[in-house]
Each structure stands twice: as structure tokens, then as C-alpha cells.
Write a protein that binds this DNA or RNA. Sequence first.
DNA 1: GAATGTCCGAATGTTAACATCACGACAAAC
DNA 2: GTTTGTCGTGATGTTAACATTCGGACATTC
Lengths: 222, 222
Amino acid sequence: MSEQGRVAPARRRGLADEVADRIREAIFAGTYAPGAQLREVELAGALDVSRGPVREALLRLEREGLVRSAWHRGATVTTLSPADVAELDSLRAALEQLAVRQVAAHASDDDLATVEQAAERMRRVEDEHEMVRCDIAFHDAVYAAARHRRLEEAWQAIRSQVHLFLLTRIGVRSADYLAHIPEEHRELAAALRARDTERALTLFAAHRLHAFDVLTDPDPRT
Amino acid sequence: MSEQGRVAPARRRGLADEVADRIREAIFAGTYAPGAQLREVELAGALDVSRGPVREALLRLEREGLVRSAWHRGATVTTLSPADVAELDSLRAALEQLAVRQVAAHASDDDLATVEQAAERMRRVEDEHEMVRCDIAFHDAVYAAARHRRLEEAWQAIRSQVHLFLLTRIGVRSADYLAHIPEEHRELAAALRARDTERALTLFAAHRLHAFDVLTDPDPRT
DNA sequence: GAATGTCCGAATGTTAACATCACGACAAAC
DNA sequence: GTTTGTCGTGATGTTAACATTCGGACATTC
């Protein structure tokens, strides 16, 4: 969005990045369920590359918390225990508070517009997987608007895990989810646009709570 | 201490971990100054291993923010601009607040004792490099006492950079630093031991400010 | 003389073969 | 019957050679 007319970044990516993307997609698509082993030779064969880039890709996915690996024991897809979800929620809260403060205080109008667009995009979504992607994308936009590289990196370190968590929510309260979530995000964006820090913090906290307590307190109506 | 009599973790580490440690030490020792290039063949030759583990080690150091790398352009030691230092300070604040809350609320007495020991250890230190190491070790202990794996990982992602930052402070106000810092940390530990969340948060904030404004507002007396 | 095009060197990216390790099954010993 | 020791399999860890790419130096062109 209007990077002041700047041209594209135009940086070439290595094979390892590409491989990491493919593996990540496969995990989110359910090809590799949580707990499944990710064998290097198998992945290398499937993606038609050697083990080097696969190895590097697994290291990056480990940085994202999507994968855990032990010495000579290979990599497995992360499984999220209730304790893990609690950790994710508290850490996400800490990061998001900082992000919201930064955005409300210093964000450019362009960046705010990008956040609003991300919220708008959710209204035209039917598929649940797509909605989860949009949800994550919205928060990506918020962190991007904060213009805080290390904060964004910290978010990326748990981003995929949050994605995984949201995925487990699919099927539960799906009707509510699809109906209410877009409006909720529009309010978040509006509070940021108004630069109302306190209101934004409150709304973001409520938003996290909605996502979180579906697991601990499932809605009996569904 | 006293992990309830549990034996040591006893997990073997790979070559890559060892290599990462050596490179990290070399950077902290000043062998590779900020901005310096880290050539894979050079490191591999010096450490007498092949480029594979070196490559892996550089990826880990990149995760720690100690190293930056671009495609086909190799890795360089991170240089910290004033903006970077500001980022570190704000992110560190967010993480530390969560850690302090967790510790004050749920930490075991054993974990608190470990924190106190880390603070005590600072009193017998003369060398400035050693003091910086103890300073970091103290905060390590606090994060460990929080018993929050992802929070600890987030801390580790900026830990080395904070170390680098503290190193730049050496030589400035060194007398003050060596004299006052140990007492400051003992107060931090005491507030945690008393489980006085608000006081601890205030003290930790003041502590960060002390470290931070040496660069922005150097003491004229020194 | 400034700009463009081409080439060379040096570094990283990638590959495939080799070495090492962990886990499980099976057998032996107590 | 439980435990301990051995072995084989299949994976990861490591290595060294090959391919690709970047950056700068030099020559060329207008």
C-alpha cells in the first residue's frame, strides 16, 4: 500500500525458504498432523530437493515453534497441550499490548488503512480455513503497523502456533465464528484508527478471550 | 536448585550447538566486531569442522539476532543503531513485565532462591565483562523462574542483543556500574521474594532505565 | 568523461555420499 | 519372569565436491 512510490523489494529467496513454505502449508492443510514425524529424506523426495534445504527449512520451522526436534531423533509437528495454549495466550497478550500502544501512538495513516483493509477482507469469506488465514493476516497487519522489527519477529515466533490453535477451533462454534468475528475485527481497527489506546487494549483483550475460552468452556448450544 | 532430586537432563548436543557457542563467545570477546563479515569457510577452517555445522550455527545465531544474513551475501555481526536499542528496550519491557508477574504469582521458593543467588554472585565481581555476564544471568534466572517456555524463548531471541548492548556500555560510568548494580539486583530479587508485584514492576522498570539512558544521556562527571 | 557491458574471483547455495547415532527386537543370563 | 546385553535397521549428523550468484574491475561505447 503506497510505500511512497517505492519499487518492490525484489529480493530473491533461496530454496530453503520455498521448502519451509511448502512444509508449513502441508502442516496447516493437515497432511502432517500434530505429533507426526517429519523425515528429511521423505520431504526431500516429495519436494524434489536434497536434504540440505529441507534441513534448513526445518530449522526455520522450529524457530516458528511449528516443529520440535531433538538430536538424532528428527523433527515432529508440535502438539499444543492446554498448558501450551495458556502460554501462547499470555505471551500473545504481552506482545499485542505493546503493538497496540505503538500503533495507536505512532502508526501512519497508510498503515492504519492496511489494517482496516485486512478487517474488511474478512466479510467476504465463507470458508473457515480462509477465515483463520484472514484472522492471522489482520494481526500481521497490526504488527506491521507497529513498525517494530523485533516485536514483529517475536510475533512470528508464535504466529504459526496461534494459527495451529485457531485451526483446532474449526468445527466448534463455527456459526458464531463466521458471523461475529468480522465485525469484531472492524471494531478493533476502528479503535486503532481513533487512536484510542485504552479502548483498543480492552477490545483486543476481549478478542483474545473469545478465541481462548472456546476450548476451556465450549458453548453448549452448538 | 534442587530439582526435587531429579537427575541431570543428560541430552547430548550436536556439533552445530558447539560451533554456535564458539562463534557467540568470539563475538562477545570482540574478535568479530559489529558489522564484520562471518565467512563460512573461514569459520569452518578455524574451528576445524566442515561448512555444514557452521551454516547451521549461523542460522541459530540469526535467530538470536546476533547475526544478520542475506541471500548469497553471507552473514554479518549485527550492529545496534539507536533505533535498535529503543526496540530492544520496549520489547524487553513487555517480556519482563510478563515474567515478573508470573514469578511473583507462581514461582517456587527454589526458583526464587536461584534468582537470589544470581544477585549475590554479582557482589564478588570485579571485571566488567564478568559483571555483564552476571547481569544477563540474573535475568535468565528470572525468566527461568517464570516457568514459561515460550516467554523464555522470546527472551533468548533478544538476549544476545541485550548482551551486546550492555557491552557497549563498558567504559562509560564503569565505577558507578560496578558499585551500584549489585545492590540494585538484590532489591529486584527481594521484591520478587516478597511477591510484591507492583514494587517489582517499578524496580525492574527503573533498572531498565538505568541501563538505557547511559547512552542517550551520558554522565558528564565521568 | 560518464555510462554501459562484460568478465573474473570469491563467496554462498546445493547436492550426494559417508559416518554416527538412537530405537526396537531378540536372545541370554540371573 | 524380569532384567540385561547385543545387534540390526533406519534415521539424522557430517563432510567435501559441484553449481550458482553477487560484486567489483576492466574494457568499451557514445
